[in-house]
Write a protein that binds this DNA or RNA. Sequence first.
DNA 1: TTGAAAGCGCTAACAG
DNA 2: CTGTTAGCGCTTTCAA
Lengths: 339, 339
Amino acid sequence: METGSGRNRSVPTLEMVAALAGVSRATVSRVVNASPKVNPDIRAAVNEAIATLNYVPNRAARSLVSRRSQAVALVVPESTAKVFADPFFASVVQGIALSLAETDFTLNMIIASESRSEKTRRYLLGGNVDGAIVVSHHSGDHSYAHLGQALPIVFGGRPLTGADDSYYVDVDNDAGAATATAHLVGLGRRSIATIAGPQDMPPGVDRLNGWRHSLQSAGLDDSLIEVGDFSPESGTVAMRRLLDRGVPIDALFAANDQMAAGAYAAIRERGLRIPEDIAVVGFDDDYFGATATPALTTVHQPAVEMGATIAEVLVKLIEGTPVERVTRLSTKLMVRDSA
Amino acid sequence: METGSGRNRSVPTLEMVAALAGVSRATVSRVVNASPKVNPDIRAAVNEAIATLNYVPNRAARSLVSRRSQAVALVVPESTAKVFADPFFASVVQGIALSLAETDFTLNMIIASESRSEKTRRYLLGGNVDGAIVVSHHSGDHSYAHLGQALPIVFGGRPLTGADDSYYVDVDNDAGAATATAHLVGLGRRSIATIAGPQDMPPGVDRLNGWRHSLQSAGLDDSLIEVGDFSPESGTVAMRRLLDRGVPIDALFAANDQMAAGAYAAIRERGLRIPEDIAVVGFDDDYFGATATPALTTVHQPAVEMGATIAEVLVKLIEGTPVERVTRLSTKLMVRDSA
DNA sequence: TTGAAAGCGCTAACAG
DNA sequence: CTGTTAGCGCTTTCAA
């Protein structure tokens, strides 16, 4: 009585359906689980009973006996949670949720903090979920990699550690950066600088590599590099340093839109024009790029698709269907006004 | 055999713990559930057995017998999911997840589309969760309100339908708008316009009311109203219409930062300066305001706190602890350069 | 093809 | 304070 707002609407059980349909519980179970060997007439009768009773199978009971939770965990490291507002990340989550909605799997979101890591580990290994997704944009956090032995896990983003047997889905950062840089080269620019991201994060590394490869194959100088931390402020600082080198610069590839936006400020401080004096290309295609003036030419990432793909790979892994360990999604250059 | 990557590491059961500790399963259960009446020595022995075995209680089994899933659903209407990248919304979700992490509840995220509404209903009522949270920023979607009878539900945001018995947590939009407007009045502005949000969304209505109340109590004209749809473009269009009225305007309260950013463009088109000619205040304190030049004075919403509060209210509701039906969180005016 | 029976791992009376 | 005894709702051999 004192438990407050409990459920009182009597939930129909499989047994009640069986009684109403005049069959055994086993048969109802077979119908519910779409077993092929059930007499069509009986099947119809059972389905009718299910409908009139508004029967919904009890997950806990099913899970208990089948040893399957039909749930997957979405693990979000707390450090990432802070940048939860990251539009890219948000879209990835959206893609995951949308894709999973098509299946029978439920999505359990859990924030994993350092302090609660043991709790998280237990949760994942305690049979609460059939698999897990670990996402952390702009980070190669694979501290859960070793759990891959015990539980199907798919990572969003390439792990930092090279030789890995993890399953992951990533955006082709290298190719995207190379395409962006090639665009600059195609525009006739010859002194192309870059503001790279942190070199301890895969996207930071991969995008720098893409820029470098593109420049090298064009036979251009690839020494105009400054490193930022993906924040607008770091972009401003890095751009100033680039300009302070005294070397003429006619183009910039920033490893993300936020730093590109920051670079805008530094470029303007020096009385230079965009794109006339310095053409700028960013990466991410987020708010920062969209609201900048002039509109930023940038590399768009298929975030929703990435989320959907992660979910699909995980489901296949859980179901034992063969899948590639690595899936790389291609990006698209959005040419606007800055380059 | 053909089920692919299943778990093989034998999961220890309560029974194994009991055997190792030399007690009955009931006693182990008591220790696990922190029952007060257990001999300290026995408790210690059991805990040791739990530790050495690395025992984790099976949720399904527990849930089956206790009739509690220890899970809550986070229902995100699909229309909202599109604006999943909305930073406010993202922070609310973060607050929810963080708060729930402190409890024993799990967060099940589900995207509810029109086409799958029956599936969602069944999921919620099928005993899969002990309660639900329905969030949809910038919308008073309470189509799940009637489920409140059968399941504890807490809404994020005020419902549009006035007389309601739903539980909800909201930001005090009215007061926030009034404070923003009062700030403008305090600056000596006398012709204060507003770009309101859609009048079929609670925040749109409440913010317009706050503006109006503030103006009325200052004895100023409250007829300079144009309605937008919260997008930057609509802000530009609305501002042009306001300016086209031919009435001098020296200040603007935009119902959100995005529209304020849009208004910036229209104001500049006319060769007017911000804040000298027209002081501008927005609402939301998001990217748009932060990156605008001049930096936008705006109303900050406690998004993470809102999420945390929603979760706390729901947990209390589930546990039968008394809670207020309505919780209104206060906002904070962030004075920057535009007003 | 269908039914009977045996649990899955856990909690909750009820005794002792 | 601790153990015994029943199941929770479902799937799954095993027979019929």
